[in-house]
Write a protein that binds this DNA or RNA. Structure first.
Lengths: 209, 209, 209, 209
DNA sequence: CATGAATGAGGCTTCATTCAT
DNA sequence: GATGAATGAAGCCTCATTCAT
């Protein structure tokens, strides 16, 4: 038991070291020796815990997904108030937590790239597909709730808006990654105000701040 | 004159062959020999036109940007009607043209990845930053036009909505890339209906179709 | 301690294998794989000990210099007798030790060539300059000693004679390298007899044998 | 006839351009394109006059040998006076003419290197062997002449002294090549004074200047 | 378990040479 | 004759992976 725990710890140690190095140098720019150095262990040790570089990379991916999902779930369950308020709160929580780790954002791009072309593309693609589906589900549930409570208009297509929203969050962070002068949080809040006004059944004044 | 033209032709030939191979196998999965074979030329010939694999990759990037920008500009200039109609038309045109080359979408992911970690990251990052800025500019001009014509509400922040929209288009295509069962065109139209309703100064019924 | 020793041993192993192959095929005619084969190791192993082919070549040069210098020093310290006798003895010792490794003489030519044109030319040129200076110093000290002891004429310029002598030894070996029928030892002894007679303060009969 | 002359001219043009580039960059560091540029012609043209890079290099060698031999012969035939004076005059003439083209001296090293390891080594080795033999012959004839005229001692071995002398000239230039601060002309003159004194049948005071 | 020295497959790039114009 | 675009053989070097200690 304790043994297993120690093993898990070292596994995590390696994963987090690998995440750091992959984020800085990209998958192909990373050499195993760098990860070992970052983790403070020997090169060979990595192969005691992972089958290959690819295997380790996928483990980093899973760790990353788990981490961000966990955070997203915390954000969502903590929400209260009207559907509009909850949407805006979700927007804030997500962007804030991602902005906190914008230096890790390059990992996401590596994951996208891996899903497009690496030998592991199938595994990545499937994980992304399912991840996006889950996330769209969560957001669309939130919107449907607003519709049911007559806060949002009944003719709104919750799934479409959810899909777009999920994408918008991704893409604003992407733009922030490219452009230091771009403020995704303010941008998103102002955009959400417009969108929520479009969702709302009663005309409302926009006030994002 | 003719000589220069021939040289340009061969350059383009190589770029397009490279785009194909890079899209299929990714930057690192691609070997120069494959590109040469795809282009029907000798390996060494590529080095008559490009300094290195990286140089060729960046040339593919520039070619891709130019191509998509050209298409985007055509879409925009061709627009007529109200601001709402023009926004929706732009949505349709962009998504349609991208869906036509969804098999090339993996290139975009390679470009993102390159901007995150490759040795060329600065060049790519700058190009993306500028590309996004330009595109946000175009879309926000369109929205501001709607505000000026009192079609859209004056309190709308055109820049924020433009940034979000630009991102949404990107991200819906991304989701489509991961999920064959995902229909980004319909999704985007339904979402646009909501968004436009949020932008509009007069209450309006949503009818995306 | 032992680890370091093993590392040094393998380094030496590679250097000596490389010396052999470089001597046979020249710097540019040598491929790394040949050296690895000669050393009985894998190609990659060489790069654990040397940064590049050039780096290895320079290491061979340093090893060679050290080796021949060591031998020269042994020859010189072992000398006894009159200045004339010591000069003649030095002549014999040097030529004999070089003749023992005439098959390695091509290395010297490779080193010269490297000092003339390779990317490493500065490093080589400097090493040669210093090597020749040191050697001239040693020989001229010997001659000055003869002058001080009134064995040699006072008006002799020790430095010039030393420089010429050092060169003569080089060049006789060079001629021997080109011409199997050329006997540099006998030639040098007969020449030394004349030279020593020119140095000597008292007329003396020449008897090289 | 005129056609042949033009052909010869272009051949010479290429050889001299090649000599320049080979001297600067060495045989292996030189690429055919550089020679073509230096000669102001097209790359392919070189192959109209020479079979290969090696062939061209050997032609440069022959041109170089011819050039230096011609100069040496001029020096020798112009000599007058006693054997001692002629020897010293030869020394001066040779060193002066070589010092005039010390920037070409690296070519000699390339030739040596080629004789040691290139695929053409046999051709080069033979040429050097013969060249040295011829040169030793010339010098030893001069010395024998001095012996016959009783200017030099009868027990001197003309061949050995000639071989050493020929080598000394080579090697002093070599040292000058490595060491900017080394003056081979003065050095050689002072050395020659000693040597001539060793050769002379009557005791003589050394006065190199 | 942990290590890191050893390995060799693999890929980018160079450049002598060819040959169609 | 002259040219230079095209070629592909060849070689340096990297780095994921193995395995003896």
């Amino acid at each position: 038991m304790e043994d297993k725990a120690r093993k898990q710890n070292k596994r995590s140690l390696i994963i987090e070291a690998a995440a750091k190095v992959f984020a800085n140098r990209g998958y192909n720019g990373t050499i195993i020796a760098d990860i070992a150095t970052e983790a403070g262990i020997g090169k060979g040790t990595i192969y005691e815990y992972f089958l290959s570089k690819e295997d380790l990379f996928f483990a980093v991916f899973q760790w990353f997904v788990q981490m961000t999902e966990a955070e997203a779930k915390v954000s969502i369950t903590a929400l209260g108030g009207s559907a509009s308020e909850r949407l805006m709160a979700l927007n804030d929580a997500l962007l804030r937590s991602w902005l906190d780790m914008l230096d890790m954002y390059s990992l996401v791009m590596e994951f996208w790239s891996a899903s497009a072309s690496s030998k592991m593309r199938q595994r990545f693609k499937q994980a992304f597909r399912e991840g996006y589906r889950d996330f769209r589900q969560i957001v669309s549930a939130l919107i449907r709730d607003g519709i049911e409570k007559a806060e949002f208009r009944p003719e709104v297509d919750a799934e479409s808006v959810a899909a777009a929203l999920v994408g918008t969050w991704d893409a604003l962070l992407l733009q922030a990654w490219f452009d230091e002068g771009f403020d995704p949080l303010t941008t998103s809040r102002r955009f959400m105000a417009v969108l929520i006004s479009g969702l709302a059944s009663k005309p409302q004044v926009i006030s994002p701040s």
